[in-house]
Amino acid sequence: MKLILSSSPHAHAKNSVSSMMRDVIIALLPAAGCSVWFFGMRAVWLIAVCIAASVVTEAVCRIAMKRENSIGDFSAVLTGLLLALNLPPDLPLWMAVTGSVFAIAVAKQVFGGLGYNPFNPALSARAFMLISFTGAMTTWSNPAGYESVTGATSVDAVTCATPLMFIKKGDVSQLTSLKSFLLGNIGGCIGETCAIALLIGAAYLIIRKVITWHIPVSFLATMFVFALFKGGVPPILHVLSGGAILGACFMATDYVTSPITAKGKIVFGIGCGLLTMCIRSGGGYPEGVSFAILIMNAVTPLINRYTQPKPFGRK
């Protein structure tokens, strides 16, 4: 008998980092599908290019750092997909590639790879691109003008404003119906427009216990309450517009960069919601979700320190 010696436990739930990442990717598929529905081949190209660039960058970095290959954990695929869904439809592809390389090389691997990065890689890249390519990152087109995947119609894309731009200007009359918000037939980043698809994905993650409800609910509820007191735009439109749902359900819930306890997650979500609304109402940009989450990422270690669980039996 050739026996193995190890410490208990000798059984495992058979879950893994890659299965959790895979679940998040599956949860993003409805939103990715909607982005293709509304923005056609542009969305397909953006998603493909971002994922490919992320995975290649990950592999090259690991070789350069003489560490084991980590593309099998699917975190690079997820970063690429999330970044793509956070980009405007007309962005030149070389910019998307630059952003993907930044996300993996600078925001993630420089710190040691998955588990060590202090900031969400996809959001870091988006912030980097917003500063570097301000014009291209803030030019939006109406979904109606895109060639569909089947190539049926071909109309030139029409530049339009996003709902948040109207909100910023206080021009509420220009806002489209609630139905358009839910279905995603509005201007915006390719993956953030369809609220229903995003919520289906979030529900899947909560049911599969990949994420908990704490961050999404506290994040969006804080925005809602803030908007309610501020008045003007109906609060529900604040929650449904821009990257709020995508950010609250898929970016703020990133394990590595968010607090570990339920209490900490609620504090984190409230912080994200408040900052988002502050930036939307008083900041220079119409949208604040990315910056809000990044700022709260920086606060995460502090939140963790003050929200430790109390051991069973401790008074």
Binding site: L114, G115, Y255, S258, I260, K310, P311
Partner: peptide, 17 residues
């Protein structure tokens, strides 16, 4: 693998550690 801070162990720990 490195810890990804997912919190699964916190939710599993019967001693709330």
């Amino acid at each position: 693998h490195p810890c990804i801070n997912c919190g699964t162990c916190l939710r599993a720990c019967p001693m709330s550690l």
